[in-house]
């Protein structure tokens, strides 16, 4: 499924880039390629079963003390 998603994203992006090249929107292409490359890199890392950190895990670690503090005010 990951490969299918990558192929769909790449084909869609290539069609978009053709239009952007015609409009000489080179800045748009650079920005788009950077974001797309990071997305595809994440996909490749997931396919290689590389363990990546959980986003919400980080947020929870950082903000749970605030949550506990406010809960203590209301208990």
């Amino acid at each position: 499924m990951t490969i299918v998603a990558m192929i769909v994203a790449l084909s869609g992006a290539l069609l978009e880039y053709r239009r952007l090249v015609q409009n000489k929107s080179y800045r748009d292409i650079i920005m788009s390629v950077c974001l797309l490359a990071s997305g595809l890199l994440l996909g490749i890392l997931q396919m290689l079963k590389v363990k990546l950190p959980s986003l919400m895990g980080g947020i929870t670690t950082a903000f749970e003390p605030f949550s506990k503090m406010v809960e203590s005010w209301f208990s």
Binding site: A9, D28, I29, M31, S32, C34, G39
Partner: peptide, 8 residues
Amino acid sequence: SLLIPLCT
């Protein structure tokens, strides 16, 4: 131009 990269 950013829609496909952001969706990906």
